[in-house]
């Protein structure tokens, strides 16, 4: 890397006066942060990144009258707290958020579990099984990562509506499972290339002697997979699992396209987007609804932040 030989320009008229050499990087950081401008900049950015969310969060706990007659910042002068908005989104006729909360859960669990299970097995096959055309097939799977899901959607929907070979129709009024299968399947398909790739990379790091010695002892692939690989793969599976969870839970496009437009099986994102269009000034409902949908991914994120960051650094970002 170019940084191996630090390039230092000879002129000393730089912006910062050269400080006397200090022993540690931490000390340097401390010195730099004691610069009031740097601290100020950090605080300004932090505020810009927090205030929008805080505003909506505070609004969700204010009475409707207050929300419409004054800005949320007035809350600090005249604090009125109520849970009415949350009650309204759950029990009121016009939102019925509990239905969509259930839908989100019903959509998310299989859409996370199924691709992870399939991808772990496929990754094992690519890493430790010998078969003709293995490398070519792996490259093909890897290359499928570049296909944007939009490119697949129009033909995929017609496959669901009008399947070949007399297979059962997966979308429409008589669809099995109330129509959830189209959403589950789509999420599973779209997750596979990245999941297989990441899990394969991780699996290759497990020492080959482990597998070889197990084989010598007479263990078959199934035993090696379930007894040796799965326990070792837990961190990698967790890292990808969180990403897939957040991706499915927060998804709007797949649910809109493959949910058949029926709100009966739509997740919360679709309901909120709908509400944002039809009741665009009903901030008491929008704010509470938004926070119901945000709270679960936030809890997952905060609880499993370690895995999340690890997954990010391993490249689990959907292209």
């Amino acid at each position: 890397m170019s940084a191996a030989s630090p390039v230092v320009p000879s002129d000393t008229t730089g912006l910062a006066p050269s400080a006397p050499p200090e022993p540690s990087a931490a000390a340097e950081a401390k010195r730099r942060l004691s610069s009031p401008w740097a601290s100020l900049a950090a605080i300004v950015i932090a505020i810009l990144w927090t205030v929008p969310t805080a505003g909506l969060l505070i609004t969700s706990f204010r009475p409707v009258g207050d929300i419409n007659s004054s800005g949320w910042w007035k809350f600090f002068l005249d604090p009125n707290v109520t849970l009415d908005n949350y009650r309204a989104v759950f029990t009121g006729d016009d939102v019925g958020l509990s239905t969509y909360l259930v839908n989100s859960i019903v959509i998310t669990l299989p859409a996370v579990l199924i691709p992870i299970a399939l991808a772990t097995m496929a990754a094992y096959a690519f890493a430790w099984m010998k078969f003709p055309g293995r490398n070519a097939l792996f490259v093909a799977v890897f290359a499928l990562q570049i296909v944007p899901i939009q490119v697949t959607m129009i033909p995929l929907l017609s496959l669901y509506v009008d399947p070949p070979f007399g297979l059962p129709q997966l979308a429409g009024a008589n669809a099995p499972g109330g129509g959830f299968y189209t959403i589950w399947l789509s999420h599973a398909m779209f997750a596979l290339p990245l999941a297989i790739f990441l899990l394969h990379n991780f699996m290759r790091e497990i020492p080959g002697e482990l597998v070889e010695s197990a084989r010598v002892d007479g263990a078959g692939h199934v035993q090696i997979f379930t007894r040796i690989m799965l326990p070792l793969m837990v961190p990698a599976i967790a890292a990808f699992g969180i990403f897939q969870f957040l991706w499915v839970w927060n998804d709007l496009l797949v649910a809109l396209v493959f949910g058949g437009g029926s709100l009966n099986i739509s997740p919360m994102t679709v309901r909120l987007a709908e509400l944002s269009g039809t009741r665009d000034q009903a901030w008491h409902l929008l704010s509470a609804g938004a926070f119901v949908s945000l709270i679960i991914p936030l809890i997952v994120f905060l609880a499993l932040q370690r895995y999340f960051v690890r997954g990010l650094l391993a490249g689990s970002v959907k292209g």
């Binding site: 990144w49 929008p52 969310t53 505003g55 909506l56 609004t59 957040l246 839970w249 927060n250 998804d251 709007l252 994102t269 909120l272 987007a273 944002s276 665009d280 901030w283 929008l286 704010s287 938004a290 949908s293 945000l294 991914p297 936030l298 997952v300 994120f301």
Partner: peptide, 16 residues
């Protein structure tokens, strides 16, 4: 934190 929430949620936050 905004990474964890949906783009729909983020859009509502900013519409406000």
């Amino acid at each position: 934190m905004p990474m964890a929430i949906s783009l729909v949620g983020a859009s509502l936050i900013w519409r406000f």
